[in-house]
Design a protein around this nucleic acid. Structure first.
Length: 554
RNA sequence: GGGCCUGUGGCUUAGUCCGGAUAGAGCGCCGGGCUUCUAACCCGGAUGCCGGGGGUUCGAAUCCCUCCAGGCCCGCCA
C-alpha cells in the first residue's frame, strides 16, 4: 500500500510538473509524503518555489482525489496526506499471514556467512558475521528470493595444520564436558606458543600442508578429524543463535575434484598472470596494486586459489552470490571480484562488516584473547532467567527457562544487528545484557502485550479505521514494512529491519498507552482491536525477519 | 608511506549512498506515572557550532576539497 501509493503520487507529480525526477521525501510531521520539486522548477520557470508549489496543487488534487489523497502547499513544499482508504487498506493488508513478503521470484541466491576457521570457538566477532548474514538471508527469503545459505569450511589452511601438529605432539586431552571447539582452541594456542619458542616447528607444519595438498590419506584424515570436531562445536553455537546453514562446503573438495587446477590453468593463460617463484596475478588494471598470489614457491595452493574455484562454482549455479565478510577481507575480496570479472564469471556481492574489539584491545584466537559466543549466550541466558523469574514468579521453571532462552537470543541478535555493519564496535557486557528500550526484548515485549490484549478481547468484528493521531502514526509505520524489507535487500543493509522494528514497537507502546482497547466500546473497540492485531502481526513478521522469537507471553 | 572504513549531546547510536521544513532515539541525569489491557512500559525536562577548516547550492550532518583523530588492510596466513 505504501509502495503503491508512493508510485501513484510520483506519477501524478511527473504529470503535473513535467519533470522526471520529482524529489519525493518523507513528510515527517508535516505530511505522509512530500515533494521538493518546486525548488528545482524555480530556476527553470523563474518563479518563486512557493508560487510554483501553489500552482501545482490543483492539478495534483484533481489527479489524487479519487484515491483519498489530499495535497497542500506549505510554502515551497508539496505535502501529501493519505486518506481513510489508505489507512483501511494498510490495516487490512497487515492482517494477512506473511505480511511484508515480496512477490516470489525465480532468482536463486547463495549467501555465504560466518565461514570461520575451525581452530577455536566462535567468538563475539564471528557472530557479528553470523547475525548480519542470517538476518540478510531472512530478508532475502521474505522479499521472495530462493536463498541458500552456505558455510565455507577452511579445512586445509595453515591454522588447521598447526592444530594437527598440536594433536600429534602435545598430548592435550579434552576436559570433562568440554565442547570440542573450545578444546581445539587450547591445542591451537599451545601449539602457537611452541612454534614461537621453536621456529623449526614451522617446517613440520609446512610438511603437513604439503601432504594434505598431495592428498596423503593419513594426513587428510587428521585434518578432517580436527575440522569435523570443531564444526560440531560451531553447529551447536550456530543453532543457539538461530543462524542455520543449508550447506557446509568443504574447501578441499575443490582441490579433490580438480576445479582449482582448472581455474588456475585458465588464469595462467591470461596476460596478467606471472610465474616467478610464486604464481600470481597482476590486477593493477583493476586498480589493485598488490600481487594476487595463488600458488606458493613449493607449488602448494593458497586459500585464494580454492576460494576462486568455490566462487566460480557458486556463480555458475546461482544468479546472485552474496558473501558476508569481515573488513579485514576487503583487499582479498576485491581481488577475487576483479579476477572473476576478468574471466567473465559472476563476481560475488560482498557485505563487509567492521571489527568487534574488546575494551582491552582486539580479539585473537591465537592469543586466546576473545569472548566465546558460547560464554556470551550462557551468561545472557542466566541474566534473562533471573529477569523472567522476578517478573513472572508464578510460571513453572520450565516455561521461564524457555522464555529466558528466547529473550537472551533476542538481546544478543538485536544488540549486534542494530549497528550499521561499517561501524567498528567495542563489545561491552552491559550493552549485551540490556533488555530495555532499543533492545530485542523490548520489541518482543510490545508483541507479547499485543497478544495479551487480543487474547483477552475474545471475538470482535474486523473494522478498519484510524481515528486518532496515535492510531494513524502506528498505521503509517505498519504500512512501511514491505518497503523496508525490500530496501534492506536492495541495499544489503539488514540493520534497517532492526531500526524499523524498534520504531514500530515505540509507536505501538505509545498507542496502547493512550488509547484504551478493551475498555473502548462498539465500533471503536473493534477498530482498535483490528489495529492491535495488525500491529501484532507486523511485529511478529519483523521479529522473525530478525531471527527473534515473537513470544506470545513473557 | 598508500588504500578502505569511521568520527552526530557524558556514553551508545539512526539519519549520509539519493541535499530540503525546528538533527531522531536509547542509556545515564532531573521530575512524574502501577486498586486502570503484563511498569522488559509510558509522560515531561536539561544536554548537540553533526571532528576542524574551506567550497558548491536558494538550502549541507548529507555533495566536493583539505586537515585532524581512531580502526582495518597492504603475507608464499586465512
Amino acid at each position: 500500500m505504501y509502495i503503491e501509493t508512493t508510485e501513484l503520487i510520483r506519477s501524478a507529480l511527473q504529470e503535473a510538473s513535467g519533470e522526471e525526477e520529482v524529489l519525493i521525501t518523507d513528510g515527517g510531521e508535516h505530511a505522509d509524503l512530500a515533494s521538493t520539486v518546486a525548488f528545482a522548477l524555480a530556476k527553470k520557470r523563474r518563479a518563486s518555489p512557493a508560487a510554483i508549489a501553489a500552482e501545482l496543487v490543483p492539478h495534483l488534487a484533481a489527479a489524487l482525489a479519487a484515491h483519498g489523497i489530499t495535497v497542500a502547499a506549505t510554502g515551497p513544499y508539496l505535502n501529501f496526506r493519505f486518506g481513510p482508504p489508505y489507512f483501511a487498506g494498510v490495516v487490512q493488508a497487515a492482517l494477512a499471514p506473511g505480511y511484508g513478503a515480496g512477490a516470489s521470484r525465480q532468482v536463486r541466491v547463495v549467501l555465504e556467512h560466518t565461514s570461520a576457521n575451525p581452530n577455536g570457538p566462535l567468538h563475539v566477532g564471528h557472530i557479528r558475521n553470523s547475525i548480519i548474514g542470517d538476518t540478510l538471508a531472512r530478508a532475502f527469503r521474505k522479499a521472495g528470493y530462493v536463498t541458500e545459505v552456505q558455510y565455507y569450511v577452511n579445512d586445509m589452511g595453515r591454522q588447521i595444520a598447526i592444530v594437527v601438529w598440536g594433536m600429534d605432539h602435545l598430548g592435550i586431552e579434552p576436559e570433562e564436558g568440554e565442547k570440542p571447539d573450545h578444546y581445539i582452541a587450547r591445542v591451537y594456542v599451545e601449539a602457537n606458543r611452541r612454534i614461537e619458542a621453536d621456529p623449526a616447528i614451522t617446517g613440520e607444519v609446512d610438511g603437513l600442508m604439503q601432504q594434505v595438498e598431495a592428498l596423503d590419506p593419513t594426513t587428510v584424515r587428521k585434518f578432517r578429524s580436527v575440522v569435523g570436531r570443531c564444526l560440531d562445536g560451531f553447529r551447536e553455537t550456530l543453532a543457539d543463535l538461530a543462524t542455520p546453514h543449508d550447506r557446509f562446503v568443504w574447501e578441499s573438495d575443490f582441490l579433490r575434484n580438480g576445479d582449482m587446477e582448472r581455474i588456475l590453468a585458465k588464469l595462467a593463460r591470461l596476460p596478467v598472470a606471472h610465474q616467478e617463484e610464486v604464481f600470481y596475478l597482476d590486477l593493477s588494471g583493476a586498480g589493485i596494486e598488490n600481487r594476487y598470489v595463488l600458488r606458493r614457491s613449493d607449488g602448494t595452493s593458497v586459500y585464494a586459489a580454492r576460494d576462486l574455484a568455490y566462487h566460480l562454482w557458486k556463480g555458475r549455479n546461482f544468479s546472485r552470490v552474496i558473501d558476508v565478510l569481515g573488513a579485514d577481507h576487503k583487499l582479498i575480496g576485491a581481488q577475487l571480484q576483479a579476477t572473476l570479472r576478468l574471466i567473465g564469471e559472476l563476481p560475488p556481492e560482498i557485505v563487509h562488516f567492521e571489527f568487534v574489539s574488546l575494551p582491552e584491545g582486539s580479539m585473537s584466537t591465537r592469543a586466546g584473547t576473545f569472548i566465546a559466543a558460547d560464554d556470551l549466550i550462557a551468561e545472557t541466558r542466566r541474566r534473562a532467567f533471573d529477569e523472567v523469574t522476578v517478573r513472572r514468579p508464578e510460571l513453572p521453571e520450565e516455561e521461564r527457562r524457555a522464555i529466558a532462552q528466547s529473550v537472551a537470543l533476542a538481546a544478543i541478535r538485536y544488540d549486534i544487528i542494530r549497528i550499521s555493519p561499517e561501524k567498528s564496535t567495542v563489545f561491552e557486557w552491559t550493552n549485551a545484557l540490556d533488555f530495555e528500550r532499543q533492545s530485542g526484548p523490548y520489541i518482543q515485549y510490545a508483541h507479547a502485550r499485543a497478544c495479551s490484549i487480543l487474547e483477552k478481547a475474545g471475538d470482535y468484528t474486523a473494522t478498519f479505521a484510524a481515528e486518532s493521531s496515535y492510531e494513524q502514526a502506528l498505521v503509517r509505520q505498519i504500512a512501511k514494512f514491505p518497503a523496508v524489507v525490500a530496501q534492506a535487500v536492495d541495499e544489503l543493509r539488514p540493520h534497517l529491519v532492526a531500526t524499523y522494528a524498534r520504531e514500530l514497537a515505540d509507536l505501538f507502546n505509545t498507542f496502547y498507552h493512550f488509547e484504551p482497547v478493551l475498555r473502548a466500546e462498539g465500533a471503536t473497540r473493534d477498530a482498535r482491536l483490528t489495529l492491535v492485531r495488525a500491529a501484532q502481526n507486523t511485529l511478529k513478521e519483523a521479529l522473525e525477519t530478525l531471527g527473534i522469537d515473537a513470544l506470545r507471553s513473557m
